[in-house]
Amino acid sequence: MKILINALENNTTLTTLKLSNAGVDAEAAQHLANFLRNNMTITKLQLFNNEIGVKGAKHLADALRTNMTLTSIDLGLTKIGDEGAQHLADALRHNIGLTELYIQSNEIGDDGIQYLADALRYNMTLTTLGIFCNQFGEKGARYLADLLCYNETFKKIELRDNKIGSEGARHLANALRKNTTSTDGKTLYDVTNDSDLYIYLCGTKHYPSQIDNIKLKPEPRRRLPP
C-alpha cells in the first residue's frame, strides 16, 4: 500500500480508486486514510471485500472528518461491525462531501444502525445509504424510520436481507407517508424479502404512491386495496 500511496501523491487526474478484493487490512487502511486527508482529486473509493475491520474503519472515518472531496465510498464486506459503524457515524456528523455510503454485509446490528441514524439527522449531504445484508431488525428499522422523518435529503436506502419483519416494515411505511422531500419521495430498495410492507400499504390505502417508491424482492402481484 505504501508503494501505491507514494505513486498517487503527485497524481492530479485520478478520480476513482478501486481497491476491492485487494487484501487491504487495518494497517493499509491507515496509510490510505493518511493519504486521503489531503487528497483533492479522488471522488470515488471502492474497498469492497477487504480485511479493514474496526481499526481500519476508524482510520478511514478520521480521514472523512477533513476530506470533503470524496463523494462515494464502498466499505461492503470489510468486517467493520457495529463499532466500525459508530466510527463512520461520528465522521458523518462533520463530513459535508459524501453523498453515497455502502456498508453492506458487515454484520451491523440495531446498535450500529442507531449510531448511523443519530448522526445522519444532522447530515444534509448523504443521499444514498447501502445497508443491505446486515443483522439489524425491527429496532433498527424504527431508528431508520425516525431518521426519515427528520432528514429530507435521502433519495435511496437499500435494506434487503435484514430482519426488520412486519413491524419494522410498518415503521418505515409510516415514515414514507410523512415524507415530502420531492415528487418522487424516498426510495427504499428491497425492504424485505416478503410482502409485509406491500400488504401494510395496501391495507392502509397508500397505493400506489408509496409502493412505487419501494422495491420488494420478489415483487408481489399488485392490486388496488378494496
Rank of each mutant, 00 (worst) to 15 (best):
K2Q: 14
A7L: 14
L17T: 02
S20E: 12
V24A: 07
Q30N: 12
N34M: 13
L36W: 07
R37W: 04
N39R: 05
M40I: 13
Q46T: 04
L47W: 08
F48T: 13
F48I: 09
N49D: 14
K58Y: 04
A61L: 07
T66W: 00
T69S: 06
L75H: 02
G76E: 10
Q86C: 09
L88I: 09
A91K: 01
N95M: 06
I96C: 09
L98V: 12
Q104R: 14
S105C: 07
G112E: 01
Y115R: 03
Y115F: 13
Y115N: 03
N123M: 01
T127L: 05
L129V: 07
I131W: 03
C133S: 15
Q135I: 08
F136E: 11
E138H: 03
R142H: 12
D146W: 03
L148T: 07
L148Y: 06
F154C: 08
K156I: 14
G168Q: 07
L172C: 04
L172H: 05
A175R: 04
L176R: 01
T181V: 15
S182W: 01
D184I: 11
G185T: 03
K186L: 14
K186S: 00
T187Q: 04
T187V: 10
T187F: 08
T187W: 02
Y189G: 05
D190A: 10
I199S: 08
L201S: 03
T204Q: 11
K205D: 10
S209T: 15
I211S: 03
N213A: 12
N213F: 00
L216I: 12
R221P: 09
P225Y: 03
